[in-house]
Design a protein around this nucleic acid. Sequence first.
DNA 1: TAAATAGTGTCTGTGAGACACTATATC
DNA 2: GATATAGTGTCTCACAGACACTATTTA
Lengths: 240, 240
Amino acid sequence: MTARTGRMNASDEANAYPAPHVTVDLVIFTVRDEQLHVLLMKRGAPPHKGLWALPGGYIHPEEDLDLDATARRILLEKAGIETPYLEQLQGFGSATRDPRGWTATFTYFALISSETLALRQGANAEKVAWRTISGYGAAPGLAFDHDQILTAAVTRLRSKVEYTSLPVHLLPTKFTLTDLQRIYEQILARPMDKSAFRKRIAREDFLEPVEGEMRRASNRPAQIYRLKPGQATAFFDSTI
Amino acid sequence: MTARTGRMNASDEANAYPAPHVTVDLVIFTVRDEQLHVLLMKRGAPPHKGLWALPGGYIHPEEDLDLDATARRILLEKAGIETPYLEQLQGFGSATRDPRGWTATFTYFALISSETLALRQGANAEKVAWRTISGYGAAPGLAFDHDQILTAAVTRLRSKVEYTSLPVHLLPTKFTLTDLQRIYEQILARPMDKSAFRKRIAREDFLEPVEGEMRRASNRPAQIYRLKPGQATAFFDSTI
DNA sequence: TAAATAGTGTCTGTGAGACACTATATC
DNA sequence: GATATAGTGTCTCACAGACACTATTTA
C-alpha cells in the first residue's frame, strides 16, 4: 500500500481522481554585460528534447521540508548557488502544458549576482546557458509553457523593481550607488536622475556605507555601500 | 499502466519519488455588517474532524482545464458563486502541513459581494459559516496550515487595497462613492478624507456614473456609479 | 590643468491631505 | 429652517524630477 492509497482530500471527497504531476520550476535572473539574463537548460530527453527549458524538478518528499527547500535544492543542483534572493512566483497547471497529461508547477524566481556563479552541468549532460532578456522576456521556442512562465517572471521583476530594493540582490555584496542606479536603469530600460535616485535611496535607509572603502578610478573615488545587516527588502511608498 | 508510470520530470531525472498530494484551497472574502469576513467549512472527516477549514478540493483532470478552472469549480460547489474576482495567491507545500504526509496546495482568494451569495451545504453535510476577520486575520484553531494561508490572504488583500481598485468587487455592481470609500476604510481600518479619496478615484477613471440613477435618502441624493465596461483592476501610482 | 565621475543644492510642478465650504434632498 | 449627507474649492506641505553646481581623484 502506497502513501497515496485511500486518501481523502481536504473536503472529504473520496479521491477518485488521478493526481496530476507536480514540479518546481525556477526562473534564475542575473545581470551581466549590462543586460538581464535568465538561466536555461537544454532538454536531454523527450518531450521537447533539444529545446531550451527552465531548470526544474520534482519534490523529494524525504529530503525537502517544504516547497522553498525544493526550490533551493534545485537551485544548488543546477546553478551551484546557495543563498540567492528567492521568491515564489505563481502556480501554473493545466491539461495541456505537458503533452504527457495534466501537470502543475510551483514556480520561483531567483536573483543572483553574476560574480557568485558556478554553473554545473546536469546529470544527463544537459547544457546550461544564459539567455538575454529583451522587452518583456518573450522567448518563443522554449519547452512546455516556459515562455509564459518567463514572461510572468519578467513582469513581476520589472514591477517590483519599480518600488522595492530588489535589485541589490543582482549586485555583489559591496557596490557603489552608481552601480545600483545602473541596475535599476538596465532592468527598467529607462534613464534616471542621479540626484532623485540618491535622495530616494537615502530616504529608504536600507544601505550603509562601508567605512573607509572607496572605489578608485581616474576620478573622484566612490563610496562603497552594502545592505544593512538583517535588512529585508525595502518597499518604497511610490514608484522609483 | 497508469498515466503516472514511468514518467520523467522536466529535468529528465527518473521519477523515483512518490508524488505529494495536491489540492486547491480558497479564501473567499466578503464584507457584511461593515466587516471583512471569510468563508469557512467545518470538517466532517479526519484529520482535524470538527475543525474549521478553508474550502478546497482536488484537481479533476478530466473536468478542469487548468488551475483557475479548478478554483472556479470549487467556488461554485462550495459557495454557489459563478463570477467573482478570483486571483491566485500562493503555493503552500511541506512535509508537515497535513498529518497524512507531504502535501501541496495552490491557494486562491476570491472577492464577492455579500448580495450575490447563496451558500450551499457540502456533500458530507459540512457546515459553512462566515467568520469575521480582525487584525491580520490570525484565526488559531483552523485545520492544517489554514491559519497561515488566511493570514497571507488578508495581508495580500490589505496590501492590494492600498493601491488598486480591488474593493469594487466587494460591492454590488452599482454603488455610490461613499459606499466605496466605506469599503476601503473598513478593510484598511483607517478613516480617509472624502475630498482626497474622490480626487484619486476620478483621476484613475475606472468608474462611470449611471445616468439618472441616484440613491435617495433624507438628504442630498448620491450619484450611483458602476465599473466601466471591460475595465480591468486599476493600479494606482501611489498609495490611496 | 584637463578629464571624468562622485556627490549636493535649488527650483518648480504635482498631488495628497486637511479642512472649510457649497449643494440638495427630506422632515 | 433644521438636519444630514453629497460633492467641491483652496491651502499647504512633501517630494520627484530637472538641472546646475561643487568635490575629488588620476593623468
